[in-house]
Design a protein around this nucleic acid. Structure first.
Lengths: 207, 207
DNA sequence: CGCGAACCTGAGCAAGCGCTTAGAGCGCTC
DNA sequence: GAGCGCTCTAAGCGCTTGCTCAGGTTCGCG
């Protein structure tokens, strides 16, 4: 944990953001956006949380919207990586689906501050940036749809409506970011396990 | 449909809001809040959509936040009424749960513009108003939990974690407001039916 | 030591914000 | 038909917003 730097795990969440001042600003922005929402957050608030003057923000980022885009891009990349890793492992469709849901959901719970911004501030992005992010989300959808489709073809699952069920599964997982509370009684891993079970039921996985 | 006025159904969505100018403003606010979010919406935009000057808004509402509160209050009341009606009917727990989910979800799809504001702009409310709305949401949660609990006690459902499953079911239903698109390929009723089936699977209802 | 690049601040600009005020128009009653 | 209450508008106030810019500090490097 101390010497790890670019191992791409979750050890240093914003390790790819340099220099350090830019990372501090970005972390401050994540907190502020998650608490109040993008539009209700001022650049003065972000700079203040990072211990800087408002003008310092514009040395590292062209606009407030660019900050949101960086957060959204990195967050989507990480979430997609989690899903694709689980989907690519060996095992039955049920095992891969459970694994994917468990890691995707526990990430949304563990890092719910980031996830809230990533999942619910999409519409504040500018047109070009939004197009880029929407493409990532389509890949996310495709990964889940593929696992469910595999399970249906293998006779493991009973799913009358694959696209609809895919949508519902992803919607269920994403919404964890909205309600999860760190002070609550469940750990991120517990929520991940619960949700993996619920999703297996949704696709009619044989026990 | 033509002569119905105060029958409390969904025939005249904002029928309880009078006078007509106040209703026009409220409908305009719902559209604007749903499209851009509360904080990104200006009072000039709301008044403009209602065909009035900005000052006209303040004859009918004390502040912009009061508008949001009225929308949120009426929307929560309606959604809660749908759930309680379904929950209070005769039938097995599975029938009541399916009924509740179907009507709750198809309302969120049909009136997704309103529902988006109601469900996702909670945090923009002032402290007192938010407390009031949160109380309504707890009642919503209690209704669903009760049906699921009934089903477990009757041996109809297999649910290891009732509070967790209740949370997941409501989360799934509510999130319909976020992704539903009127131009999409599914009707609100189709989504309601699909979701009722998925929820019955989640609670392990016997076929 | 001298110099340039990188980083940051204090002050502030133009624009837009929520909301207020003075008064106009209109339909109602007595 | 004068007076009154209700509804609405034009104008604008005070403030905050995202963002800029000239200048200062710090640092590595010759």
């Amino acid at each position: 944990m101390s010497t790890a730097e670019e191992t791409d795990g979750d050890s240093t969440p914003w390790g790819e953001v340099t220099p350090e001042a830019a990372r501090r600003l970005l972390v401050a922005a994540v907190e502020a956006f998650a608490e109040r929402g993008y539009h209700a957050t001022t650049t003065r608030d972000i700079a203040g949380r990072a211990g800087m003057s408002p003008a310092a923000l514009y040395i590292h980022y062209k606009t407030k919207e660019e900050l949101l885009h960086r957060i959204s891009r990195i967050g989507h990349d990480r979430a997609l990586l989690l899903l694709e890793t689980a989907a690519g492992r060996d095992g039955t469709a049920a095992e891969r689906l459970a694994d994917a849901v468990r890691s995707f959901v526990s990430w949304h719970a563990e890092r719910h501050t980031t996830a809230r911004v990533v999942q619910y501030e999409l519409e504040a992005l500018g047109d070009e940036h939004r197009v880029e992010i929407v493409a990532l989300r389509r890949r996310t959808d495709a990964v889940v749809r593929r696992i469910i489709g595999d399970g249906v073809r293998a006779g493991e699952f009973d799913v009358p409506d694959v696209p609809g069920t895919t949508l519902a599964v992803l919607s269920l997982c994403i919404d964890v970011a909205r309600w999860f509370n760190a002070q609550g009684s469940r750990t991120p891993e517990e929520v991940g396990t619960l949700y993996a079970d619920l999703v297996l039921r949704m696709v009619g996985a044989r026990k």
